[in-house]
């Protein structure tokens, strides 16, 4: 599935939940279920410091695609992180760089990607694209 298709899928899943409590319930569930973060990556270097909560993001490249591991100390943030990984994981650098994230807005979670929320998510999305740019440059120079 393309980045757009995965986003549409998420929008559809959330569209069935009209109550905010159900949407946040799902986010909390996704946050609790997010696995795959290796403890050795919980370093200051991988830390994206928000004023309110913290996010750790680690990226690696394999076969021309980028894979992410991430964690947060706040579960709602972690739930959104889980969604971001679902959309962005296993993509080529070009796909990531060209991607436009519209699903957050469409599932009424836009407030969490506003810079004033200082939860680390805005910086995380930026950092994901930075990784993509760095790997892209690296691949082109090889």
């Amino acid at each position: 599935m393309t980045i757009i298709e995965v986003q549409n899928e998420i929008v559809e899943e959330f569209s069935m939940l009209s109550e905010w409590m159900d949407r946040y319930s799902l986010l909390i569930e996704l946050g609790n279920e997010l696995e795959g973060f290796h403890e050795e990556h919980r370093t200051d270097q991988n830390l994206i410091e928000g004023c309110q909560s913290r996010v750790w993001l680690y990226a690696r490249e394999e076969g021309g695609k980028i894979y992410f591991e991430a964690d947060s100390d706040a579960i709602i943030v972690k739930g959104i992180v889980a969604l971001l990984i679902r959309v962005m994981n296993g993509r080529t650098p070009s796909e990531l760089l060209e991607s436009e994230l519209f699903f957050i807005d469409k599932i009424s979670l836009k407030e969490h990607l506003s810079p004033t929320r200082s939860n680390g998510l805005v910086a995380m999305v930026k950092q994901m694209k930075m990784f993509a740019l760095a790997y892209k440059t690296k691949m082109e120079n090889q």
Binding site: Y24, Q52, S53, A74, I75, I76, N119
Partner: peptide
Amino acid sequence: DIHPFDAGTLLDK
């Protein structure tokens, strides 16, 4: 076991 950010976000709702 509940991060203050999570509690504050839900209370805001």
